[in-house]
Amino acid sequence: MCAICGCGALGDHTHASGDHAHGLPIEFGAKLAAVHIPGWSQERTIRIERAILDKNDALAEINRSRLRSADVFALNFVSSPGSGKTSLLVRTIADLLSRRPIAVIEGDQQTSLDADRIRAAGAPAVQLNTGNGCHLDAHMVAHSLDKLSLVPGSLLFIENVGNLVCPAAFDLGEAHKVLVLSVTEGEDKPLKYPNMFAAADLMLLNKTDLLPHLDFDMQACAAAARRVNPTIDILPVSARTGAGLGAFYDWIDARHLSQALAI
């Protein structure tokens, strides 16, 4: 087969003129002259030079402009498993749902347990099961958006798969990544998983009601997070008692306003 145009046996045509029917202005004789022109020999190298996550990033931008034009403020919640993301969302829904519509996309490897909890709290939820996948990507979120009615002025919470590594690399089209770190984890987590802390705009230090029982050093944790990400906002909260959540809701309002004004 002709390696240039893929149109049958080599002997059938010669590509002799520069006016090639397929719009390729190059002499086929290059190979016969034993000159290697990258991209045109039968065994050839095709330069691509593209970011591996190019497609994800392009889809994420589509999601982002779709959300912005619908005036939906989307947050991507990332954390290790067990930090209390779902409890935090359930509490936030209970506190804010009377003020504004909220929808949730729940990512887990399997089960619809989390989406069931969100629906029980009164918000519509789409459960995404990634199977063996360890993160959500922009393509999955795009399809989830089709299933939700995007109400202007509403909040969209995307709960990523519990994993402090891979979700850092996948833009979903959210306005911000919110990292939930519970005080039962270690204060050195930001240094051990720097990519995620670098990608987040807000760190919620959850389960602060347990602090009296722990040796967790809040200052050391904040210092570690700021070393990785000097501009990260940090708010201590307890999804269980509600402590600190007012500041989180103010943060949401302020950032949503910034997004609305940026259009």
């Binding site: 390696a3 065994e43 190298t45 095709i46 691509i48 030079e49 593209r50 970011a51 591996i52």
Partner: peptide, 20 residues
């Protein structure tokens, strides 16, 4: 010191393919 700006080491790129 800790005032470091990372300049490389973050690449995730598909550079080229060799085909026949």
């Amino acid at each position: 010191g800790e005032r470091i700006h990372m300049t490389s080491g973050d690449e995730l790129q598909l550079t080229e393919i060799e085909v026949e």
